[in-house]
Structure formats: C-alpha cells, structure tokens
Nucleic acid binder design. Structure first.
Lengths: 208, 208
DNA sequence: CGTGGGGTTGACTACGATCAATGGAAGTGG
DNA sequence: CCACTTCCATTGATCGTAGTCAACCCCACG
C-alpha cells in the first residue's frame, strides 16, 4: 500500500488546475487551500483542506482546482487510479467514493453560505462552519483559529477583504465574538452567532 | 438490471432532502430542479437536471437536496446501493462514480458563475452555460429555451427575479440576445456574451 | 531603522434589493 | 364564449449595503 508522505511549506503548491491527476492527498496536519482562478484573474476559494480531509479528487483524470498550503502542512499521497479499478484496492476505492460523495454534500453546504445575502451572515456562517469543524474548547470558551487571511475568507464567501473585516468588527461590537489577535477568535455567544448564520436574526448595527 | 421508468408532471417531487436514498435517477426527458431550502425559507437552486444527467447521488445513504420536475419529465430510476458494493453491478457502479466526480466539477463551475460580481455577468454566464449544454442551432442562430422561470434563475445565480429580468433586458438592449418570448432566447452575439460571462468586458449601460 | 504585508477604518459611490404597479398569458368556472 | 383569477415578467422609484479607493496602524522582517 503506497502512502507517500510529503512536507509542505506555506504557499507551496501540490497541484494546479487540469494537471493530470495521479494522486489524491489526505491532509495529516496544516491547512490547504483549493482555488479556481478565472480568466479575468478573480479567484474563487473552493474549499479549505483541514486535517482528515481528502483533496484532489480528479475529474476525467485531471485535477479540477489548484491546491496550495496555507500553513506548513503534511499530506499523504495515495494513487487515485483505484477510483477506476475497484478491485485493485477495494478499501482505498471505497474510501475515495465516500470522499467524493462527502465533497458533493460539502459543496452544496458551501452554496448556502455563499448565497446568504448580508455580509455579516456570511461571515457568521463561515465562523460557525470553522467552529464545528476545527473549534477548540479552551477553558469553557469556544476558540477558532483562522489559518487563512481575510482575503481567503472573502474569496470563500464571496465578499471583499474589507467587508469581511468590517463584519468581524460588527460581530465583535455585538459581543458575539472576541479577538485575541486577528487570527484567533473566541466565540462568546455561539447561539446568537449560529442564529445569525442561519438568517434567523437581524443584526442591529448600533443601538448604543 | 432494474430500470424503473417514471413519468413526472410539472411540480411533482421525486425526493426531498434527507430522504433515505434507494435510487438515483437518470433524466430521460424534461428538466428537473435540485434545491436546498434554509431554515429562514430562502431557497438555493443547486442544479438543473437536463436529459442525460444523473441526479440524486446520496451522502451517507440520504439525499442531500430536494428534487422536483420543472416540466413534465421522464426519469429512469436505478438502485444506488451498487455505490457501496462495486461487485454487485460493476458497470452501474462505475457509472455512478463518474457521475459523482462530474458533479463535483460541475458544482465548482457553478461557484464561478455565482461568484461573479455584476448581475449581467452572472446572467450572461448562465445563458452561456445553457447554450453550451442545451443550445439548439436554429437556421444559423443559437437558440436557448429556458424551461425555468426567472425565480429559478435568480436562485441559481444568487440574484432576485427582478434583477435577472433587468439583466436580460440589458443584454437585449446591447443586442447580444433577442427574445422570441420570455422563455426562448436567441443568442445574437455569442462571442460578446461569452466575453461578458467571463468578465472580460464591460457592459456599458447606455451611451446613445 | 526602514520596509512591506495584512488588518482596520473612513468616505464615497454604485449596484442590486425592495416595494409597488402594470401588462400579458394561461387556466378556471359560470 | 367571456369574466375572473392567478402567475409571471417587466419596469419604475427608492433605499441600503457592499464595493472601491485611500489612509493609517501594527507587527514582522531585513
């Protein structure tokens, strides 16, 4: 069973869009960024790869996105031809199939975030997503570490970096979150944040 | 080999979100609509199912979207358990795996449309998508029939029905398209429409 | 000590959402 | 066959919000 481990430095690419796909990658540590770039230079962040995720599933033998590391990261590569030949490695094959179906569901979820109308709802939904996925419980407080910068978040939820920053400021003013530093968020009121993320609640700008 | 054909009337549902998934469906004729609805009632159109498409791929044994027919339609149902058991029906299994990988790619493409900033670019991109997918060449003119209404388009690209309508009016004023009736579009200038869809071009409102 | 990148904030603008009215086409029932 | 309703598309007027451009700050880095 081939499992080639690879160490990645921040910014290092694993593959590019339409590269012939020989491997898929399981994230061991660190965070990856999957993007697609349009002719006019605009970038769409398709997904972030957190530890445990499988990235790089091919379509017609080619990668469909670009992939690079946000942090230093470790991935293990697995040949992806078992996708086409179940019998060659049944366990890996079924792992990949499951990963594909999960990916579909995840992309659909992503649409719901992306489709929210108000900026603060998008950002709240993004934070909840990260909280549920990689949140840490630090002495009774919910902690979210953001390995990506504001531009990455913006390109993930469909906003500009400035608007992401403003939304975070707003959520902080509303006392739903608190910032230790720009990349470390403490969720003070998960319920209200979640309600906002689901569009159930109006975010009132400032009452004072 | 089980292939259960089913006739559908417009508006008729095939399955709902989180229904246990026993079948996937191949569209024989007509057009399906795949949607997800949020708690607050907002609807996201995930995809349209055109003839040849396979819809209803499950995640963890359940459907992940709602699916109903826009037009009267005919689908053929195939059991989806071969997804988990390649050996039970290798041909169907590999068909489903391919469909899943195609779906991933398609959803990623959808993000690029959805992510475009200007309304007319989104609508142009949507029309190009349909032109390439189901366009007809009618005596040297490119014809696109829209089986869905403006609301469906709006929920697909992330706009309101009014804005979709306005964008279409704009494209018509720019002489990129012409309407036979609200649901029949003649593409007069595919190149310019495509350029707009890809964000390469500015759409000038009115010089006159 | 200087430089550069990322984050935040401000001022202004532009664009799409919203609310509302209209018109046309299709369907229903008398 | 004609009133009546309903749904959909279009258009208009207004408003709000996110985009844009710019300045500033802070921290890490050389």
């Amino acid at each position: 069973m081939h499992r080639l481990n690879r160490q990645l430095a921040p910014g290092q690419h694993i593959f590019f869009e339409s590269d012939p796909a020989r491997f898929v990658y399981k994230v061991r540590s660190g965070v990856l960024r999957l993007t697609r770039t349009q002719r006019d230079g605009r970038r769409q962040v398709i997904a972030f790869g957190f530890p445990g995720d499988i990235v790089g599933l091919p379509c017609a033998g080619r990668h469909t996105t670009e992939c690079d590391a946000i942090t230093s990261a470790e991935v293990s590569a697995r040949r992806c031809d078992p996708l086409d030949h179940p019998e060659s490695d049944p366990k890996l094959h079924s792992l990949l199939v499951t990963a594909a179906l999960d990916e579909i569901r995840f992309l659909q979820d992503h649409f719901l975030i992306f489709g929210r109308r108000r900026a603060s709802e998008k950002v709240a939904a993004f934070l909840i997503l990260l909280l549920d996925r990689v949140g840490e419980a630090a002495d009774d407080r919910h902690l979210v570490r953001l390995p990506m910068n504001r531009s990455d978040i913006a390109d993930y939820v469909g906003l500009t970096p400035e608007t992401v920053s403003r939304s975070i400021t707003q959520l902080r003013a509303e006392k739903m979150i608190k910032l230790d530093d720009p990349n470390t968020i403490i969720v003070r009121d998960p319920d209200r944040l979640r309600a906002l993320a689901e569009g159930a609640q109006e975010l009132v700008a400032d009452w004072s």
